[in-house]
Design a protein around this nucleic acid. Structure first.
Lengths: 256, 256
DNA sequence: CGGTGTGTTGAAAGGTGTCAATGCTAGTGG
DNA sequence: CCACTAGCATTGACACCTTTCAACACACCG
């Protein structure tokens, strides 16, 4: 772990994502930036939060991918969600004694730790930032609900297509996708644990997507070749993850 | 929909549940009660929230069961979670334009609608109640994450056992279970849509649980006969849903 | 009394898992 | 620079869990 060098806050993923929703003023941006002052780099494959252990700090991913997961005693693993740059982990750490699930880094990750009291103070001092935090938490909830639908009611082929589009959209939201192409650090085993399948079957499913000309899948990179057809295969709801959810003049703004 | 007659607030499910965590003072109880003043009864099989439509009020279930669900265009349905008495729906309605999934009543439901502004004001006026709201939201998140694990990495037999225990525990938390026995208004088709299976297979799985002497399943009622063995089958984490998460003197309390 | 929804059961099909072997690539140490 | 290893991707054969399709039973209700 080493101290990271930071650049222009406007390029930070969280701020970039939020700027699509709201025009932040200079004070808000600098306060958000100060939230993220305490920054560390964790190497890949590090467990940064462990289920059952103490956990009181909200965490913001600046760079890299992480996986939220739960383990069953017999070794089975389920990945709940991936945290990408700009994602907030454990917003309500302050009302919970212990971590209820674990989080590990997939790649090297630059993350910020935020004191829970600072989060709370947003509600009185920076209500628009508090609203953004709530919006972010709700977005994570929506992603988790889509995950339930994906695993519960979609075929392996649909699941995989759906997750690929979701990751593309989420990375686009923070400016990390280019021309339907994203960095893709997930092994097929991680994909399997995320989609409730086996690595072998993920492999076959990916091959099918590739054979059908929908994607290009090489080590570390994923390209969506026919985005619209893939969206159709996945039955991806266009409204899902659309950043139109927190308009200026929302209730939070007008009430505080 | 008709106006409901209310009794002693201490018997309301939400307050009963919260009282296991924190000793509420009279002022907090009466404020919580005033939150829930606007109460209506919806008949069974009513869609109270519709995906894609406007939705700005936080809702509290006083009585009855409801199902959160998403529909796929071809008719497949996935139930995300059940809302039971004392559960809060859409705490952050204020930061979201439209409902992102639907909710329908399973039984007749008595529900309260809460103005989003009132929720926000808790953070400054009744911080301990605000903490409770956050805790409640986090609990719902934990339930949803367990749902992912259940569907993604457990067999049909384990899934069913796990859900049964979860429902028992949740109803116990609001005083609606007696002697390992709960009212059970779910059809096997609802169960199937919740567990990512088909109704036929749920039927066979329940029969197996019954044949193994673990449960007694009759129309409208479920009895867990061998709780410990069922917990073992389900690999139900004893810490899951334990109400030890919001101790007196938590960060929220001390910071505000 | 005849619907309609729900539960129950059987047989067959199919999607996904399991097991096992092979290939490939990157990193490591001699 | 070359084995050598470890991790990951790939593929085949087969087993099995779950679905599908279909039929029937049963209770409730207008």
């Amino acid at each position: 772990m080493e101290q990271a060098v930071k650049t222009d806050p406007a390029d930070w993923p969280l701020i970039r994502k939020v700027s699509r929703l709201i025009d932040l003023d200079a004070g808000e941006i600098s306060h958000l930036a100060s939230l993220m002052a305490d920054t560390l780099v964790h190497p890949a494959q590090t467990e940064i939060i462990t289920a059952g252990e103490d956990f009181r700090h909200t965490t913001i991913i600046q760079e890299g991918w992480a996986a939220h997961f739960k383990l069953l005693p017999d070794g089975r693993q389920q990945i709940l969600n991936f945290s990408l740059p700009g994602d907030i982990i454990g917003l309500y750490a302050m009302v919970w004694n212990k971590a209820e699930h674990s989080v590990k880094t997939i790649t090297d990750c630059t993350i910020s730790r935020v004191d829970p009291g600072v989060i709370l103070s947003l509600f009185t001092e920076f209500p628009r930032l508090a609203a953004i935090m709530c919006w972010s938490a709700e977005t994570q909830g929506a992603i988790l609900r889509e995950q339930v639908v994906r695993i519960g009611r979609r075929t392996a082929y649909e699941r995989t297509a759906h997750l690929f589009i979701e990751l593309l959209r989420r990375l686009e939201a923070v400016g990390l996708a280019e021309d339907n192409r994203i960095p893709f650090p997930l092994t097929q085993e991680l994909l399997a644990d995320a989609l409730g399948l086996t690595a072998v079957h993920i492999n076959r499913t990916i091959r099918k997507l590739r054979n059908n000309g929908l994607i290009e899948y090489s080590k570390g990179n994923l390209a969506i070749l026919q985005r619209d057809r893939l969206r159709q295969v996945a039955d991806f709801d266009p409204a899902y993850l659309e950043p139109n959810a927190l308009p200026p003049g929302t209730a939070v703004n007008s009430n505080l």
